[in-house]
């Protein structure tokens, strides 16, 4: 069995010290890795990224993250990335990583993504240069995640995003802001390339669960949506899946 812990939208500020460290206690014995779907910081201040790295000091699991829009706000995303990487965190923005666990390999492709809206009500690559630039950013993200996922091999394949690929996990947000919360282009890319799960954040009052039109599970792991510090996803496959299934059968 492979267990993935996931969360997003920690929004740590200088006033948040201790809050995330407290909830990580014991996680290293119940999960194989921790995936974070962006917005680790609140204002995008490098000092906030150091609050995060202080929180995970001594934490024993691999940590993989993408950055979110808040992490970009102060224009210090490169410095934030360096701070995280110096602390041993893998930061993905168009890249991928494979993490070997006792139960098998988790392959993660990650990118922030962007907005644009959903089928039938989405921004078009048309008109002013500014609008074309907006759409181009999303298209580039979609092409990147598709390319990364296509070349990934692992027992579990994860697409890690900040923005949402589908509308279902936005339910609860104001309809008017859907185009700023995600894009169908991300779902289309994931459906083409294939994945076992898509994790995202960004939509604080959205819903937890949905699927892409191609049937891939999508989970909004923003902490305000979860109501918990993180979610655990258990995949009954990989090197120890037979043992795990046997354990389950014995227990029942």
């Amino acid at each position: 069995m492979i267990t993935i812990a996931a969360a997003a939208d920690l929004h740590l500020g200088l006033d948040s010290a201790g809050s995330f460290k407290a909830v990580l206690e014991g996680l290293d014995s119940s999960a194989d890795l921790l995936l974070l779907a962006g917005d680790l910081t609140n204002y995008g201040d490098p000092a906030e990224a150091r609050v995060f790295t202080d929180e995970i000091a001594g934490f024993d699991l691999p940590v993989v993250t993408v950055l979110g829009n808040h992490d970009y706000h102060a224009g210090a995303e490169s410095e934030i990335r360096s701070i995280l990487e110096d602390a041993g965190v893998t930061v993905l923005e168009g890249e991928s990583v494979s993490v070997s666990c006792d139960g098998g390999t988790v392959a993660v492709a990650g990118i922030k993504g962007f907005g644009g809206g959903f089928a039938g009500a989405s921004a078009a690559d048309f008109g002013e240069p500014e609008m074309k630039q907006f759409v181009a950013h999303t298209k580039a993200a979609a092409e990147s995640i598709e390319s990364s996922l296509s070349s990934l091999e692992g027992d579990v394949k994860v697409a890690l995003l900040h923005y949402s690929p589908i509308e279902a996990t936005l339910r609860g947000e104001r309809l008017e802001i859907y185009p700023f919360l995600g894009s169908y282009l991300l779902a289309e890319a994931v459906d083409r390339a294939g994945a076992d799960i898509v994790l995202h954040g960004h939509a604080h009052t959205g819903a937890e669960r949905g699927t892409t039109p191609g049937g891939i599970p999508v989970r909004n792991v923003a902490q305000p949506v979860l109501g918990h510090p993180y979610a655990l996803f258990r995949f009954h496959r990989g090197r120890l899946s037979g043992d795990s299934d046997q354990d389950t059968a014995d227990a029942s």
Partner: peptide
């Protein structure tokens, strides 16, 4: 404090 847990095949 407790996380949500979901089993996926």
């Amino acid at each position: 404090a407790d996380p949500t847990v979901e089993d996926l095949s």
